[in-house]
Write a protein that binds this DNA or RNA. Sequence first.
DNA 1: CGCCAATATTTTACATGTTATCCAATGCTG
DNA 2: CAGCATTGGATAACATGTAAAATATTGGCG
Lengths: 164, 164
Amino acid sequence: MSDPAPRPAAPVRIRHFTRSLPMSLLRARESVMRHFRPALRRNGMTEQQWRVLRALMTRPGMEVSELAEATFLLGPSLSRILRDLDSLGLITRRLDDADQRRSIIALSPRGESLIEQISPESETIYAEITRRFGAQRLAELQAMLRELETLLTEGPPIEGTGEE
Amino acid sequence: MSDPAPRPAAPVRIRHFTRSLPMSLLRARESVMRHFRPALRRNGMTEQQWRVLRALMTRPGMEVSELAEATFLLGPSLSRILRDLDSLGLITRRLDDADQRRSIIALSPRGESLIEQISPESETIYAEITRRFGAQRLAELQAMLRELETLLTEGPPIEGTGEE
DNA sequence: CGCCAATATTTTACATGTTATCCAATGCTG
DNA sequence: CAGCATTGGATAACATGTAAAATATTGGCG
């Protein structure tokens, strides 16, 4: 034995952290993605690669920075993902004629057919999630999430005590 | 110019993916964390390290597997984080007397004082987020997230078409 | 034209996520 | 108690997240 002291006063005066908003959002997202990942995995796609392909499907011919914003990926991640998707022959890249710094990314025929292959499965899963939770409530939830995001993004930054 | 073809029929018959539930959750979480990260960063903590310390604060003396569940970290990540927190002198580890496979993690005095230092700032930020969004609505949001998580976790797995 | 700040993207470096594998301690079973 | 499946935790290997720096191109300005 070593330390059987009953720990008299655990000072838990802070909200239980598993109920914090970030943790709630993290867990909710994981519980959703858990259902999608197997289907992606069967087709050799990672979650992020799939995000990129889907973004390109809804609007072909995006610049890298547009794509980054749409997929919520940071530059370095996206850069690597594009390199990989390129080497898999799923996308095409060409330099913008007017500005050689920009490159235009689009789906290749092979990329399009991969999407055609995966999409139905993905939509099925999404539909089942919607059914379980209720389309109405899902819409409510999305609205709240959007509002939260807007409030925190548009509003002034929240400063703690750390003025440098 | 080179390719002014008006791209006659972009087949966008799929819900716009930036409105998908996973993306909504991801963006909402990011918009929240964006406010916390600077404060953590000023104190040399990463988001995940902070999660571990907070979990240990609410309940000292956890096993690694308990900690993993509480912080939603996978074994390998947690293992590295504990190694780092240990080398920073913020936690203590000792082997369980009854079962030498298990180790008991707890905050060191230094870890506790670090928490005392960061917590107020963190709580200030959380309070401001609550104020902006409304405590009532925040509680609603959390309830919906919890319900979603429960439905998707407890229910049967959703199978796509991928029977091998 | 030549210098330089600004912009788009990539690269670098390190922490974490993810899956698979390894190792040591445990405890069951014969 | 010897053999072996199980378990808790750590390590390996590779992809991504994140911040900072590097690279390349453009556009302005003297």
